[in-house]
């Protein structure tokens, strides 16, 4: 049998499940028996992980990646650890850069030829110290905000990827589907419960749309009640589930935390009319 050399490109395809079964078996047997191939695959895996964390993968590749690397709670913890290392290193470099250049500048200035009498250095040093302190506090706060913003961007991108037309066209083997009636229809019943279980890497909410008028597209605003975290997912469409109209919304469980969530589903308004809207709530538990 002719064996293809296992390049990083082929290794990447293999890791994303984009090879046929005979290629898979060939690569796996080399992974176990050939140290060179093992190294190539582990390096390709490391690159893939970095690309995923940077949001550099295409929608379908990101989906495949999640199926293989965020399938169990143990894998999701590994991903969170990997992300923490990268975020820490990035934050450290941001903290180091201004501090070093400032110190270097100050050192250069102090050691430069100047009059002997440097009495004015004391207040200047004090002033510089205060400025450095204020800048450090600001930097820490700025970094904290940036980390939060980055996390929000990652979540928003994941939501967008999961709910793109191509992703919704596929039915992953391990997905939990939950039908969610709007608050108006549910009247006094408690919110639906979404239990986080490691075996489901994706949760699909089937938002029942009771209105007779259909819109060209729909927008979802997802918010955890009591927090300012809001995520908007656009360009969703109605689908038929038996005889009911639904809008499917897929969520990555690793970003859900226990608590009450609210969804506002809005249809695109036709000219001169008010945008049709429905509200849904659900509780996330462990």
């Amino acid at each position: 049998m002719n064996q293809k050399p296992v390049t990083e490109v082929l290794a990447r395809r293999f890791l994303l499940g984009q090879v046929d079964d005979s290629e898979r078996q060939q690569i796996e047997s080399l992974f176990i028996s050939d140290p060179e191939v093992k190294r190539t695959i582990l390096l390709a895996e490391e690159d893939l992980l970095e690309d995923y964390l940077e949001g550099a993968l295409s929608n379908s590749d990101a989906g495949e990646f999640r199926l293989r690397y965020a399938n169990t709670s143990h894998q999701r913890r590994k991903l969170r650890i990997a992300a923490s290392i990268n975020q820490y290193a990035l934050a450290e470099s941001l903290r180091e850069q201004p501090k070093l250049s400032g110190i270097q500048r100050l050192r250069g200035w102090v050691s430069s030829p100047a009059p002997r009498n440097r009495w004015y250095l004391i207040p200047v040093t004090l002033a510089v110290s205060i400025i450095v302190l204020v800048a450090a506090v600001w930097l820490v706060q700025w970094h904290h905000r940036r980390t939060q913003d980055n996390l929000s961007l990652v979540v928003e991108k994941e939501l967008k990827d999961l709910n793109s037309s191509s992703s919704l066209g596929e039915t992953p083997s391990q997905m939990r589907s939950i039908a969610l009636p709007p608050v108006t229809l549910r009247s006094v019943q408690p919110p639906a419960e979404v239990k986080l279980e490691a075996i489901y890497p994706i949760i699909e909410l089937r938002l029942l749309w009771p209105q007779k008028e259909d819109s060209l597209s729909y927008q979802v605003m997802l918010q955890r009640v009591g927090t300012s975290d809001r995520f908007t997912i656009t360009d969703l469409h109605l689908a038929k589930d038996h005889d009911r109209s639904i809008v499917r919304l897929r969520l990555p469980p690793q970003h859900l935390v226990p608590g009450l969530y609210q969804i506002t589903l809005t249809g695109a308004a036709t000219e001169g009319a008010t945008a049709p809207t429905e509200e849904y709530t659900f509780t996330v538990t462990r």
Partner: peptide, 17 residues
């Protein structure tokens, strides 16, 4: 069951830290 497939060997759960 409602498009759900359960794992054959459910893994040991790891709580989110």
């Amino acid at each position: 069951v409602e498009f759900i497939e359960r794992s054959v060997h459910p893994p040991q759960e790891v709580e989110e830290e």
